[in-house]
Design a binder for these strands. Structure first.
Lengths: 259, 259
DNA sequence: CGGGACTTTGAGCTTTCTCAACGATGGTGG
DNA sequence: CCACCATCGTTGAGAAAGCTCAAAGTCCCG
């Protein structure tokens, strides 16, 4: 069972399925993802088919194979998306943060499970209702196409990681891309960055196609090599100065082959 | 260098960039993918921004990192999509056949390379022109969203394969899904199926995150176990009767964990 | 203070990779 | 028509990366 991690004053669970009108203006995700595609005016239509829900850390939001009844927009918190094999092996296909749109499916069933890593707030859209809104605002569909395209690019990058990178390279690639998306500073190229990791080593292992032991050993190795530093395993500092001295771990992370 | 494999009388290379009006009616892909979304009437608009091109086996169609200028619809043949690392390691993220739509990109650059496996015919759409057609026929955008969603589902399945399956499981998963899409018979569950593979063992290894040697050993192992049979390495028979006796290789290929 | 979840480290093992050799196949030029 | 060559596929032996099993340390929370 996942330890509960409170990261914000959560909306009480009683708000689940609440018919209360949405307060999009105050939403953390107002200017990201799907909701950013519409004006405040048009957003009211979207809000009309939305419900705000809360999912506590460790709880399941979507179960692989279930009928796909809703779309979700993550307004606060972190979730993990994964697929499992019958014997329990698990592959996390992505970690999603604030603003992420969720729930695209083919054939009417979800092809993945989703669980909250931290306490999470989401907007939930009824599938049929949202499709109607799409017809009225085709820009939403284009936005979703962009979302899906982005995810495909990420998925391909992750396939490269899973199929062809070493354990050390996988961890460095993960930390680098996580820093780019969630790091404390924006001048990502040269300054040290403090990275807060909402997920534990087990999640990381299942995301990187490794075991927890190998993830842990890789973190230790990178610390020894001066690539990263950390006391708390959930709070890692990327030491960018390192790149000049020993670029080996960074070399082959995401450059195309040019013959 | 890739050996050239002729699978049909190819359109001569002189047709490349030809301004000849499209003959969509005769196209192998008329009733698949993008083109199936429109009536014959509307298809003329789409055809107005399309060119038919030919890419010979082994030739490059798209280079990772290049400016994304076109979309493609594969009307005949097979191509491989892949990403590469600076040192030459390669991950094939997909094999695409007739009817497949290709070229979705973010940030104006292709995030992958594409090469013809067999001699290939494609419809090429100018990017800007196709976007205009989208505005006129929003159904195309919805079709593309479906295409992208399908690819995401496949990508997630492949991540599970790359991150968590054994070599033997990877080969079986590949053969099974290839059979489902391209096999000779439609009653896929019980009858033996003859599978024609357009790609070689190197491609297969780069798709499955293995080496050619391991792929080869896995094929041999599966043959010894009576799961498959083959003389020609490009033509494999899936022996379905086997499943009843020794289901082990098939067990944990694509079932969700149900607790 | 005690228990549980998480992380780290070590030792030995297994799967897959690397390196090497050989066989099969198909196309080409003599 | 046949010999040659390049490419592809298979097999074997040894090496290595990462996994398994085990134990101990840390931290948080009750």
């Amino acid at each position: 069972m996942q330890k509960r991690i409170s990261i914000a004053a959560p909306i009480p669970p009683s708000h689940f399925n609440s018919p209360t009108p949405m307060q999009c203006g105050a939403c953390h995700a107002r200017h990201i993802g799907l909701c950013d595609a519409l004006s405040n005016e048009d957003l009211r239509v979207l809000a009309g088919v939305a419900q705000r829900i809360v999912v506590l850390a460790g709880k399941t939001l979507i179960e692989e194979g279930d009928t796909a009844t809703h779309y979700y927009d993550l307004s606060h918190g972190n979730i993990r998306i994964f697929k499992s094999l019958a014997d329990g092996r698990r592959q996390i296909t992505g970690f999603m943060g604030t603003g992420h749109f969720l729930g695209l499916a083919v054939s009417g069933n979800y092809a993945f499970s989703a669980e909250a890593i931290t306490d999470t707030q989401l907007c939930r859209f009824d599938r049929a209702a949202l499709l109607k809104v799409f017809t009225r605002f085709p820009v939403l569909e284009r936005t979703l196409l962009n979302v899906a395209t982005h995810e495909m690019v990420n998925a391909h990058e992750q396939m490269l990681l899973l199929g062809r990178k070493t354990a050390l390279e996988r961890v460095v690639s993960f930390l680098t891309s996580w820093a780019d998306q969630n790091g404390s500073r924006q001048n990502t190229q040269h300054e040290n960055m403090i990275i807060e990791l909402p997920m534990n080593r087990v999640d990381l292992a299942d995301y990187l196609g490794l075991t927890t032991e190998t993830v842990s050993r890789s973190f230790s190795q990178l610390k020894r090599d001066g690539v990263i530093d950390f006391e708390d395993p959930r709070s890692v500092t990327l030491l960018r100065a390192h790149q000049a001295r020993k670029p080996s771990h960074f070399d082959s992370t995401h450059h195309a082959l040019r013959v």
